[in-house]
């Protein structure tokens, strides 16, 4: 009934034939694996290159006998061309705009996350989530336009002459909107990672939804929310275009949100956009700033990632 079988399959005698199971050299396989490994390692090379290149130029900057760490971290005027090396002139603006941004995005992002994870019906989520996703997808230069030409005029109406055309408040507020989706989506992940059983435990003890959300779920998700906050700060510190457009061109040691001041990122963008001769102190100083930015954001990102991983382990 199944004679064909015999044709394709060795008969009993044939099946005693010896076969060789020795390793074959598969050059193609090895070459491909080597290439793939190289692709994987390239990202590490990127980091090495960042540290090396930024470090090299930054060393040139700090190698200048006129530049001392005391001046760099101790003074409040920044104009390397004429011997002023106080990074605080830029850091103050970075801190101010970031603080404003976070004070907007943290409460809003968290509230949005709680609503989405604890309250929203699937249908409401279907409408609300895309709004946040669109906000997250808008290029930052567009936010810059919005800050300068929409928010600033409104602020001018409110504060009148007390506020400058370019000001940190407008940039910070808009940056807050920009970061909101990041904080809300990370917080939402943290909240929904809290096991159902914990919520049910709270309900079973007669808690209302709010009591369960705020007193049981939220504390359980706190470290994940902390990670969101830290990543948000990192994003704010590194954000360039909003501040480059709206917060002002020119270092100014000030924490007054109504004043114009230039952040570290804004400064790099403005100076490097002009004609810049390599080896000038202006050029090398930018790398010193960039290196600081890189290190600060790196540490923040690492902490945030560490927290997220710990958090994940706990509930998995």
């Amino acid at each position: 009934m199944k004679e064909e079988v015999l044709n394709i399959k060795a008969t009993e005698t044939q099946s005693f034939r010896q076969f060789d199971l020795k390793k074959k050299t598969r050059i193609g396989e090895s070459v491909i694996q080597a290439l793939l490994f190289f692709a994987g390692i390239l990202s590490v090379l990127t980091t090495v290159a960042i540290v090396y290149e930024l470090g090299k130029e930054a060393m040139l900057f700090f190698g200048n006998p006129d530049v001392t760490f005391a001046k760099f971290f101790g003074e409040t005027k920044w104009q390397p061309g004429i011997g002023q090396y106080g990074i605080w002139a830029l850091v103050s603006a970075t801190l101010t705009t970031s603080a404003i941004a976070i004070s907007i995005s943290l409460p809003l992002g968290l509230a949005a996350a709680i609503y989405l994870s604890e309250y929203a019906s699937p249908k409401a989520r279907g409408i609300l989530k895309p709004v946040l996703e669109i906000l997250a997808g808008i290029p930052t230069v567009v936010y810059g336009y919005f800050a300068l030409l929409f928010v600033t005029p409104i602020l001018q109406n409110i504060f009148g002459d007390n506020i400058q055309v370019y000001n940190m408040l407008s940039a910070g507020l808009v940056m807050g909107i920009m970061i909101l989706p990041l904080i809300s989506s990370m917080s939402e992940d943290a909240l929904s990672a809290v096991p159902r059983s914990l919520r049910e435990a709270a309900y079973a003890m007669g808690a209302t939804k709010l009591e369960s959300s705020l007193q049981v779920v939220l504390p359980a998700a706190l470290s994940g929310i902390g990670a969101a906050l830290i990543l948000g700060i990192s994003r704010a510190v590194g954000e360039t275009m909003i501040v480059a457009v709206a917060s002002g061109a020119g270092p100014n040691f000030s924490f007054n949100p109504l004043e114009a001041a230039e952040t570290m990122t804004g400064h790099i963008a403005r100076i490097s956009g002009g004609d810049l001769s390599y080896n000038s102190i202006d050029y090398t100083s930018l790398f010193a700033i960039a290196l600081m930015l890189f290190l600060v954001t790196l540490v923040l990102n690492l902490i945030s990632q560490y927290i997220v991983n710990r958090f994940r382990e706990r509930y998995e």
């Binding site: 980091t47 290159a49 130029e57 990192s234 790398f287 954001t297």
Partner: peptide, 21 residues
């Protein structure tokens, strides 16, 4: 870890890398 971190490096730092390299 490195890849996850690179995703969070400020874009202007990439600009500086591009400028130098």
């Amino acid at each position: 870890t490195n890849i996850n971190n690179l995703a969070g490096v400020p874009s202007i730092v990439y600009g500086m890398l591009g400028l130098a390299v």
